[in-house]
Design a binder for these strands. Structure first.
Lengths: 129, 129, 129, 129
DNA sequence: GTGGTCTAGACCACG
DNA sequence: GTGGTCTAGACCACC
């Protein structure tokens, strides 16, 4: 699938999100070498500078490491990956719930909505495939 | 409640979110007159133009209506309000779940996380009060 | 039918348009006494000041005349009325056509559109009645 | 063509009308990049903010799309453009006819007036050129 | 007093 | 260089 970007968020963040997603789901396994900046740039149809910026974000969190002259690698340490997933998930959940509460949703309503919405997301993914 | 703004999102959107929240929870009851632009500006410690922009967002969605020289009013039609809540909630849920799926969370893990996170949000609210 | 106003245009202009319309169509016949400012204000559910302003517009064009202590009267002179109609009509037509031309409509397309749109306006009027 | 503005209508609406007109007549072809906000501001001798506001009107209707940091583009979809023309034309015609009817014009009188007025508009255009 | 429009000018993130 | 946001401050029509 092509890389598509919304214009609500900076592209470099969307790129880094994509790559994080790849790391967390194992598409880019831990310890393995990542595609080069240029390769990513082609894949995403984006300026190499943008990819570069996206990768520095990941490096600053410790998810990837640069090895001189050989490229960038996914970190070996499973802990860091796991921690990143948890931290990110918790943040997303907190933001989501805060917003729902502001809309006047009760806990039950929210849980129900999540339940049904989950089905739809699955359906969408099937459509895309 | 104090009006505090993050810098992840334009202020005018945060202002409009606040006001939407007030409408959906009934702080600004349907059909009632809203505080004037200038009053909001003082409350939010923000330029009147910024408030104005926030309110036009709401007007374009039909949540509020302007009466010439008398002020802005929450729409009479409960349907629109209810629809806004649903639309907004569905959007938030979809985005949230898509992100969680990208992080490799299963449905069950997500539901559990939501469950526990909800308690914390409640706790935060108590702290603020 | 009640007097309804859009909020795209100043109310006083809409009021004066209504009254002009009444004069041109003969609802307020030439030489006859008009309803008082207060009566108009009640009819239109509008502030008397607004009616007053609307009427001064008409007086300045010569369509109505004020007689001390007896009220305001539609002018006796048919010419003035006829001239007002023509002037107004020509202005409306010119504006309309200029706008249509700006949209890239040809003369024929415009005439056709006017033809069909006229039917619809008639239909609407029947609905309102 | 010079950019001149009347003071019956907000400038930003007149600016957006001008640009819409350019899109509908093909001066700004579909899919093409528009002049930058700053360029428009110079052309129209107007503040960039005003242009910005004009363009957001068009964006909210789907006539133009913003690409981050590269500029604004006329939509690719001919349908939207065609629909905009039709919608706009129908609205203008309906308003026009309603006003004419209010002035007591019959259908025939109106059509005749349109016919003759069209010639004059043409003449004006020749004068401007 | 209400909202609406416009300007000038500044700052920012992005690519 | 692109658009986006925000401020400060002015002026306006309207009721």
């Amino acid at each position: 699938m092509a890389w598509e970007f919304s214009n609500e968020k900076p592209i470099y963040l969307q790129v880094s999100d994509q790559i994080v997603s790849g790391i967390l789901t194992g598409s880019y396994p831990k310890g393995e070498r990542l595609p080069s900046v240029r390769e990513f740039a082609v894949l995403a149809a984006v300026n190499p500078n943008t990819v570069s910026r996206a990768l520095s974000e990941l490096e600053s969190v410790g998810l990837i490491e640069t090895q001189r002259n050989t490229g960038k690698f996914v970190t070996q340490e499973g802990e860091i990956i796991e921690m990143a997933r948890k931290k990110r998930g918790a943040l997303l959940a907190a933001d989501f719930l805060k917003s729902m509460a502001a809309l006047g949703y009760t806990k039950k309503q929210t849980m129900d909505l999540v339940e049904t919405a989950w089905e739809e997301v699955q359906a969408d993914e099937r459509d895309d495939a």
